[in-house]
C-alpha cells in the first residue's frame, strides 16, 4: 500500500505508559469474576471459568497487544504546510491537517504520562481536534511552538 507511515513514531517509553494503563484497566476488570464468585456463584458451572478466561484475554489485549499495535502503527510528522497524524486501533486513521486551518495547539499530561516525562499534543481546527499522544514533554513543547508559529504564518483566510 502506497500510503506509508508518517516519519516519526511515538516515544519508546510510551509503550510502558500504555502498559501501566492496561494493568489499571485489567485490575478494574477483575471486579467481574471476583464479584461473580463472592456474591453469586450460582448458575451453570461453565460461567465462572468463562469469566476468568475472558478477563485474562482482556488483560493480554490491553497490556500486551494494544501498546504494541500502537507502537507499530501510530506516527506523526509536522511539515511546513500540514500536520500528518496516524492513529487508531481497529480502524487505522490517517489525517492531514493544513497549517492554515489550525486554530490552537495544546499540550496536556496525565499522571501516568508524567511519570515517563511524556505529554499529549492536541491540534484543533475550527471543526476538528486531533491528538498526538505520548510525545516526550520537551518534544511536545517544541512542536507546540513550531506548529503555532507555522500556523500563524499561513493564516490567510477562514
Amino acid at each position: 500500500m502506497a500510503l506509508g507511515r508518517p516519519k516519526h513514531r511515538m516515544h519508546p517509553s510510551a509503550r510502558h505508559a500504555w502498559r501501566i494503563k492496561g494493568v489499571l484497566y485489567f485490575i478494574i476488570s477483575l471486579i467481574v469474576p471476583v464479584a461473580y464468585y463472592v456474591f453469586l456463584g450460582e448458575g451453570p458451572r461453565f460461567i465462572g471459568p468463562a469469566l476468568i478466561a475472558a478477563t485474562a484475554l482482556f488483560g493480554i489485549v490491553t497490556i500486551v497487544i494494544i501498546p504494541e499495535v500502537r507502537m507499530i502503527y501510530w506516527g506523526y510528522e509536522i511539515r511546513e504546510e500540514e500536520v500528518d497524524i496516524q492513529y487508531g486501533l481497529i480502524v487505522i486513521k490517517r489525517s492531514l491537517i493544513p497549517m492554515a486551518r489550525i486554530q490552537h495547539v495544546d499540550t496536556e499530561h496525565g499522571p501516568i504520562l508524567r511519570l515517563f516525562n511524556l505529554a499529549t499534543l492536541s491540534v484543533s481546527t475550527a471543526a476538528t481536534t486531533h491528538k498526538i499522544p505520548a510525545l516526550k514533554q520537551e518534544t511536545a513543547q517544541t512542536l507546540r511552538g513550531q506548529i503555532a508559529g507555522l500556523a500563524r504564518l499561513s493564516d490567510e483566510d477562514v
Binding site: L3, V91, I92, K93, R94, A126
Partner: peptide, 23 residues
Amino acid sequence: IQAFAVNRNILQRLRRLATIQQT
C-alpha cells in the same frame, strides 16, 4: 477542508479498500 482522513480497518487492508473523510 479542515482535515482530510484516510481510514482503514484490518479487513479493508486485506481487500485494498479505504474510507475517506473530509471535514
